[in-house]
Amino acid sequence: MRTLMTMIAVLMLSSCIRLDSLMFSPDTSIETYQLDAFEGRQEIDLPEAYALPDSLIEVFTLESDLEGDKAEIYAVYVGNQNLISTDTVILYLHGNAGHLDFYWNRIKLLANTGAKNRFGVLAIDYRGYGLSGGTPSEDGLYADTDAAMKWLKEKGLTSDRLVIYGFSMGSAPATELTANPRTLQPSKLMLEAPFASDEVMLQDASGLSLPGSYISNLEINNADEIAKVDEPFFWIHGVDDDYLSIETHGEVVFKNYQGIYSEAHRVEGANHGDVPFIMGFEAYIDAVTQFVER
């Protein structure tokens, strides 16, 4: 019995199976960002009508400091950078897979909000994604997003003109930095297919009320953090999302929001990654535009 107990104690103390790092699925195989020339899989294909002038697209690097753990992360800005000091900017935070190229069509779509290049759009590759240095982590998401805000602030952006848009995993830094602002306080929060928490994932899968701590040490909790957000909130989610259920993830996040204004877009027939396509690009752009301009 003593041997058995010793074995159990050793196993528990040496427990190494945590799913924290598995939340991230970066692709670091690229040598350069290809954007329009990218031939890999993208979640949506965009018609030529949404093409943007190369002169208004810049890929560059930022320094992100995570409590001394500095990483050079990549970013792409779409729009006239001279207007950052006077106009609205959308900060786009992508999901957990791939790298910026994978989300390029989504970024272009947002850059067509209002009109072509009406608003500037900034997107980043989190540390460990694409060509960005470092290793992905929950705290890294927040630090990297804040680094993007610092860059925008240095360019003259003020909080009242910052709109933050988080897709899937990107809903975590978007919600966190709106609820607990650092460099800038986003004036509007937009979430597409957000997840409530890792605990919901576990409970959906097991059918039981098991605590999230049984599988990970992640503290991402959009369902609770959203309650701290006062800023206007836009939520869009595919009704047929088979990855992050609209019922157990999106609806919970939306219900917990208690701020000054919210709008919900439940897109019939859409799955996790094809909301703009199923909704229709123009309908999607119209909805985003109306919210950004309201």
Binding site: I17, L19, L22, M23, F24, S25, G95, N96, A97, S168, M201, L202, A205, S206, G207, L208, L210, Y214, I215, S216, Y243, H272, G273
Partner: peptide, 18 residues
């Protein structure tokens, strides 16, 4: 999202019923 789908499974199902 395919990769995360397969990895999260391993954790979730460790505690699945029966």
């Amino acid at each position: 999202m395919g990769i995360i789908r397969t990895t999260v499974i391993l954790g979730c199902l460790a505690f699945a019923t029966a």
